[in-house]
Every structure is written in structure tokens, then in C-alpha cells.
Deep mutational scan, measured.
Amino acid sequence: SGEEFIAMYTYESSEQGDLTFQQGDVILVTKKDGDWWTGTVGDKAGVFPSNYVRLKD
């Protein structure tokens, strides 16, 4: 389980282990570690910068 966040911006990365997503995607955040959080979008999982998302209303 985790908290749902909304992507405010598209995040694209070629780094292994990074979670890429489109603006407006719902991200289920499973771990918060400083500026880099872990989460899932659909069947993808990985880390992403926390300043790209906001808490879902």
C-alpha cells in the first residue's frame, strides 16, 4: 500500500531503475527517501524526483 500522487510534469529518464511517467499520471508512492521517492505506475516501478509530483486530492 502507499499514497497516491499526481504527476505535475512528465519525467523521462534512461537510467536503470528510474520510474518514467507522463503529466497527469497517478503514482502510488511506496517509499519516500529524501528527494528521490519509490513508486509505481501501472506495472512499472522505480525511483523518481519527488518535486515532480503532488498529493492527489
Rank of each mutant, 00 (worst) to 15 (best):
D25C: 02
T20K: 11
G34M: 02
I27E: 01
Q22G: 08
L19N: 03
W36E: 10
Q16L: 14
S50K: 06
S50C: 10
S14Y: 10
G39T: 00
G24E: 04
E4Y: 08
S14G: 12
W36T: 08
R54C: 10
Y52I: 12
G42A: 07
S1R: 06
E4N: 05
V41L: 11
F21T: 01
S50D: 03
V47Q: 11
D35C: 06
N51A: 12
A45M: 13
V53T: 04
D57T: 15
I6D: 05
G34Q: 15
M8V: 13
D18G: 14
L28N: 10
E12M: 09
G39M: 00
Q23T: 14
N51W: 08
G2L: 06
Q16T: 13
Y52E: 03
K31C: 15
S1A: 07
R54G: 08
I27G: 09
L55M: 09
A7D: 02
T30R: 05
V41R: 12
W37E: 04
G2N: 15
K32V: 02
K44I: 01
G46D: 00
K32H: 14
L19H: 01
F48A: 00
S50N: 15
T38N: 12
F21W: 01
Q16P: 14
G46K: 00
I6C: 07
S1W: 04
T38H: 05
M8D: 07
I6S: 08
Q22D: 11
L19Q: 03
L19V: 05
I6T: 13
E4M: 07
W36F: 08
S13V: 01
D18Y: 14
E3I: 13
Y52F: 15
G46I: 02
D25N: 05
W37L: 05
A7N: 03
G39P: 00
D33P: 02
K31Q: 14
Y11A: 04
K32I: 03
D25S: 08
Q23P: 07
F21M: 03
G42P: 02
T38I: 02
K44Y: 13
D25M: 04
A7M: 00
V29F: 00
Q16I: 10
M8G: 04
K56T: 11
D18S: 15
F5N: 04
Q22L: 08
T10Y: 09
T10Q: 08
G42S: 08
L55F: 06
F48P: 06
V29L: 00
E12R: 09
Q16Y: 13
G24V: 00
V26E: 12
D43K: 13
V29G: 04
Q23K: 14
N51F: 07
F5S: 08
T10N: 14
D43F: 05
K44M: 15
D35G: 07
D43I: 09
D33W: 01
N51C: 09
S13R: 05
R54V: 15
K32D: 02
E3S: 08
T38C: 09
W37H: 05
L28F: 11
F21G: 03
D25I: 00
G2P: 07
G42L: 08
D18F: 13
L28H: 15
Y11T: 03
V47Y: 05
D43S: 14
D33V: 13
W36L: 11
G42H: 12
S14C: 12
G42R: 10
N51E: 10
Y11D: 02
S50I: 05
W37T: 01
D18P: 02
E4D: 13
D35W: 14
D43R: 10
R54T: 10
T20L: 05
V47R: 13
K44E: 04
P49S: 03
T20S: 13
E15K: 15
L55P: 15
G24W: 01
D43C: 10
K31D: 14
Q16E: 15
F21C: 02
T38K: 05
Q16M: 15
T20I: 07
D25G: 00
Y52W: 02
P49N: 06
F21A: 02
L28E: 14
Q16G: 12
F48L: 03
G2V: 08
T10A: 06
K44Q: 15
Y11V: 01
G42M: 05
I6V: 13
G46C: 04
V26W: 01
K56A: 07
S1P: 06
G17K: 12
S13N: 01
Q22K: 11
E4Q: 12
W36H: 06
M8I: 06
E12Y: 08
D35N: 06
L19R: 01
Q16R: 11
T10P: 12
W37D: 03
E3P: 04
I27Q: 03
L28G: 05
E15N: 15
I27S: 04
K32N: 09
